[in-house]
């Protein structure tokens, strides 16, 4: 409990970014021992999470918004955003700018589907310089997804570092 650190960034975002690594490359990349660290990323819910990460990294606002449920709740850096529109019109844009400037490497990612619900837990290492400040940290992400009318949507996100 006392390990809690003070997130310093405007975003204190720990989005796990998969960068230009395609989903197809993932399966090859995650062979051997790494398999244990990357479970379920190729599942339908896992792919939605990956698409979301990519959309944030590439500044694709339409896709990022589409993958969020309207009533998504996002915990990020000590604050909460309570709808997709709220996030899309506020911090999503600064998150995108920030992520475009950073390099992130996935350390582990585990996606578990339970019926029409799924949980994605991941950890990543992020390095880079933003607004003249060097950043280097390990970030955590918990995402809850629900299958609504045949489509997986992100309903909860918890980011921390």
């Amino acid at each position: 409990m006392i390990k809690i650190k003070i997130p310093m960034l405007i975003i204190s975002l720990v989005v796990v970014f998969w960068g230009n690594v395609s989903i197809a490359q993932e399966s090859e990349h995650h062979s051997g021992q790494k398999n244990e660290m990357f479970i379920g990323v190729d599942s339908p819910a896992g792919k939605v999470v990956m698409q979301f990460h990519l959309a944030l990294k590439t500044g694709d606002k339409t896709t990022a918004r589409k993958l969020l449920a309207d009533d998504v709740l996002i915990f990020e850096g000590g604050r909460a955003e309570r709808s997709a529109d709220e996030y899309a019109h506020h911090h999503m844009l600064s998150d995108m700018k920030y992520l475009a400037a950073m390099k992130s490497e996935p350390l582990e990612h585990n996606v578990k589907i339970m019926g029409n619900s799924a949980v994605s837990m991941s950890r990543s290492k992020t390095v880079g310089t933003y607004k003249g400040k060097e950043r280097k940290y390990e970030g955590m992400e918990t995402i809850v997804l629900e299958k609504k009318q045949g489509e997986w949507k992100i309903v909860r996100i918890h980011w921390s570092n």
Partner: peptide, 11 residues
């Protein structure tokens, strides 16, 4: 196996 409990930037 795979259980993860995250707090304050560590797990």
């Amino acid at each position: 196996k795979g259980a993860r409990y995250i707090e304050g930037g560590g797990q």
